[in-house]
Amino acid sequence: MTVSQKRSLCAWSFIGVPLIYFILIRFYPSLDAFSIAFTDWDIVGEKKYIGFDNFIVLWDDPIFWIVLSNTFEYLLLGVPISLLLSFVIAYFLDQVRFGHGFLRACYFIPFLTTAVAMAWVWRWFYQPVPVGIINLGLGKIGILQFDFLRSTTEALPAVLAPAIWAGLGFQIVIFIAGLRAVPITYYEAAKIDGATSWHILRVITLPQLRSTIVFLVVISSIGFLRIFDQVYNMTQEGEGGPLNATRPLVLNIYKAAFENFDMGMAAAQTVVLFTLLLIITIIQLRILRK
């Protein structure tokens, strides 16, 4: 055996088991999910192949469209708000020396919490008087209470808030790392030219942070598209109510699969989710390549 053959053999012996694992636990199930999407199957009986029927039913299902638009609403509110907040905080936090570690820790700790636990905390906060502390606080200063989770318009932002809150810490530390990676000479050159800090931010900092921003946009987009824990734990009986106002795609998938045993319909919706994520990733690659 030549040296390179020997090394090749060694390599295969290293990745053999992991490869089998990836095939069995990642590839096969992915293909399986696609195949189930074209069946009518209640998990107990026989699988019946029905072509694109599930997708046609989805297309005609008004609730599915509500769910889809909710999912986009989570995405379109969540990403800009969380990025803007985290950038502003990171930008200023980076300039602060006094108590920097302490402040950073305060912003970062929510990232370490369990979404389920915090969903219940926020659910408590949002209750009407005499329970919820937000409305209690507003009552003290004479402001009429909000409906929050009992409102078709306020419920979705209310459910989104803890998701943004929990992700902020991660985005802040990534932004700070990105800010610190900008070469100091750039700033010095700009200072010599007498640029204002607003100008520096626009011309130097933001362009330099492009890859950081793209990375965070993608990561947080994926996160908001897959929102589930908060909705499941904050809405009555995990239904994503009131009137489906908070129900996201993943909750719809969960309900279809594990409450109605409609595996075909659930798998068809996972295909939709997959497609959405694929589109986002492709867009990311495009932007990064430029």
């Binding site: 005499p130 004479g142 402001i143």
Partner: peptide, 8 residues
């Protein structure tokens, strides 16, 4: 109700 009119 409380003073603000919220049901308690």
């Amino acid at each position: 109700r409380d003073k603000a009119g919220n049901i308690i």
